[in-house]
């Protein structure tokens, strides 16, 4: 019926022009802006990413892989994994505890607490390292005593972990708080009226609701923990094979003009970053509903 109507001679009198919706820019503007964005991203983001792998394989892929088996590379990888393995669970635990206290209860000073949790985002990593040196350095009261007891903090694993925990401190809490605010307290209250204990309520009601946001936060926390440079550089002492994490080892190799080795190790971290991004994007696409609130600062 409508087909016949559309075929009436009227069409020829008033040709229907394909016009853009009123809420859109002209095609030329759109193409220009898209081109501009892609150009800047290629120059600034994609090219640096690509050059890592180009430089790493400058003497062939075999040489790149070979350099990763050098003892200092192996120990750096091992140390970085160790640091992440301690840092991430600590901050995940803290993030859950903080989000629980902040979103399930009303208390005075909540805004101050949230600001304090966010504080590490705006402090220079070098200042973080400096603070740890001033607190735990061998020449301070506390640090001197700990060294005399046989527990050196600075220039050893504990300070590297502390520095990593500091710089990644807000990551998990930041992802969980908006999600838990959005979900409210009704489900937990229902579970409690049904006789569930506190832990049972948390494990069976809260945790399933926040699991994707938790994973999201853990991913970001892990990426930053493995890649932290400034804070760790100050407290690690850069002892080859002992306190050099992967980023520190990259700096040392680079300064010694061992370009292939430096870029190969950098390539491993770049791959980790890409995997992180892929997982993060997959989470965003699959579970957008549960993460929606988290993308607002």
């Amino acid at each position: 019926m409508s087909d016949i109507a559309l075929a009436t001679p009227l069409e020829k009198e008033a040709p229907v022009t394909r016009r853009q919706p009123v809420t859109q820019e002209s095609r030329a503007t759109r193409v220009t802006l898209i081109t501009l964005c892609l150009a800047v991203l290629v120059l600034l983001v994609l090219a640096p990413l690509g050059i890592i792998f180009v430089e790493a394989t400058r003497r062939g892929a075999a040489s790149a892989l070979q350099s990763l088996t050098r003892p200092e590379a192996v120990s750096a990888i091992r140390l970085t994994l160790t640091v992440a393995a301690i840092t991430v669970p600590l901050n995940a635990g803290f993030g859950i505890a903080a989000a629980w206290a902040i979103t399930k209860f009303d208390f005075r000073g909540k805004a101050v607490l949230i600001t304090l949790i966010d504080l590490p985002f705006s402090i220079s990593p070098v200042v973080v390292g400096l603070s740890l040196v001033l607190l735990f350095g061998a020449n301070t009261a506390l640090g001197g005593w700990l060294v005399s007891m046989g527990y050196p903090i600075v220039f050893a694993l504990p300070a590297i972990v502390l520095a990593s925990v500091f710089v990644t401190f807000p990551f998990v809490a930041r992802e969980l708080i908006p999600v838990m605010v959005e979900q409210g307290r009704a489900e937990e209250e229902a579970a409690l009226t049904l006789g569930a204990s506190g832990w049972r309520c948390f494990l069976t009601v809260t945790l399933p609701n926040i699991k994707w946001a938790l994973l999201y936060g853990v991913l970001l926390c892990n990426a930053r923990a493995m890649g932290e440079f400034g804070a760790v550089a100050v407290v690690s002492g850069k002892i080859r094979g002992q306190t050099a994490t992967m980023p520190i080892a990259i700096e040392m190799l680079y300064n010694e003009y061992l370009s292939v080795a430096a870029f190969s190790l950098a390539g491993v971290l770049a791959l980790l970053a890409l995997v992180t991004l892929a997982l993060k994007s997959a989470l965003e696409w699959r579970h957008a509903d549960q993460l929606a609130a988290t993308r607002r600062h």
Binding site: A5, L6, L10, E11, T17, R19
Partner: peptide, 10 residues
């Protein structure tokens, strides 16, 4: 109002 374009007619 001119917010939508008809596919036919005037």
């Amino acid at each position: 109002g001119g917010l939508e374009y008809p596919t036919g007619g005037r």
